[in-house]
Amino acid sequence: MLKTSRALLFLGLLGSSLAQAMDYRIETVTGGLEHPWSLAFLPDGRMLVTERVGRLRIIEADGRLNPQPVGGVPEGFVAAQAGLMEVMLDPQFASNQQLYLSYAYGTSQANNTRLAKARLVDGQLQEVQVLFSALPAKAGAAHYGGRMAFLADNTLVLTLGDGFDLREQAQNTSNHLGKIVRLNRDGSIPQDNPLVGQTGVAEEIYSLGHRNVQGIVYDAERQRLYSHEHGPRGGDELNLIKPGNNYGWPLITYGIDYSGAQISPYTELPGLQQPLLHWTPSVAPSSLALYRGALFPQWQGDLFASTLAERSVRRIRLHNGKLAGQEVLFEELGERIRDVRCGPDGALYLLTDNVDGRLLRVVPAAE
């Protein structure tokens, strides 16, 4: 167990000098996870964790990592950023045992993001069915997106990447690169998607103009869909997602290329959405959660973004639905944080992105 830590609120929206202290304690639930990517809570107190290398693991209710990986996981493409990504339970999981997985498919020369569903029965995946494969298949092993969320009508949104070398395709509505797509739970296309009925378009598209979206969460209380995405050097973004909106990449950006070259001279253009906030230098946001627990009343309704480069979690404070400042948490860990989740017990859960990754639980210091 790690020692008690104190986090200080030191960043405020528009440079305000808000300051607040909060005590918390960070506990190690389990270790021995190889580059864990995503966490899901089962109704019986157990947890599911994906490992990017292609394994789905079960953590028992007492925190013990089951040594036997879940069987039947579909084979994917594993290299660099590619591999097994998100696991998400169906809204009726307690009765149907269905879950959803996102993963990279293909080969080093032809790959992209895929969505599948299956039933979890006695530690095995059964009835595995591919629901969606992002197209076109592209070369390389970067920018897959892969995060998922359910909306109020139980349709599913899946985030995608621009393929890294194909960033201009984020503006091309005939393919899935640099998009967020929306699907029914059986993989069919909702007939109220914004581009349905238009000629020559990918009708799964819900929004476009994204770079690499690795965080998405639906706030049912406010009926808002938030996402964040990686910028290049600078320009990581938090966005409010609305159907049919164009978020500008790469026509507008607050970042520059890794070489230092200019990507675009514009940070805003007519018809392209501005981010709610952007991070420069990059923090490399890797997942997004909404806190609706009881253990930390001060966090109620706030967003939490895990980061890889900053090795932290950003608490994004919301007041009446408007941004009210930021707080940098858990830097003392010194680790890349791949996933952040609000657990059913009100604790905050973190996955560290390492060869020997850990699942951590954040609780009040006095608990």
Rank of each mutant, 00 (worst) to 15 (best):
N239Q: 10
A284H: 05
Q326G: 10
G215A: 03
A289H: 10
A61G: 00
L42S: 01
G45T: 10
E203F: 13
T267R: 15
L33V: 06
Y349G: 02
L333D: 09
R314Y: 12
G72S: 02
R167M: 07
Y226K: 08
N239M: 10
Q298L: 09
A40V: 09
F296E: 07
L183E: 03
S207K: 10
L9N: 11
V181T: 05
T4K: 14
H176I: 00
Q169C: 04
E310Q: 15
A324F: 04
G146A: 08
P67T: 05
P43T: 07
G12P: 08
Q169M: 13
T307G: 11
R233K: 15
L238E: 12
R119P: 02
Y103M: 01
H228C: 06
L156F: 05
C342A: 15
D345P: 13
A365P: 07
A305T: 05
L120G: 06
S188W: 06
G31R: 12
G209M: 05
G15H: 03
Q273S: 14
L350T: 12
M85W: 11
V49L: 08
L151A: 01
Y254R: 13
G334Q: 05
P232E: 09
L156P: 04
S102F: 03
V196T: 12
S133H: 07
L290T: 09
Q109E: 15
M85Q: 12
I316S: 00
G140N: 00
S287L: 04
I256Y: 02
P265I: 08
L158P: 07
G146Q: 11
L272E: 05
G83H: 01
Q198S: 03
Q109H: 03
Q124L: 13
Q223S: 13
L65E: 08
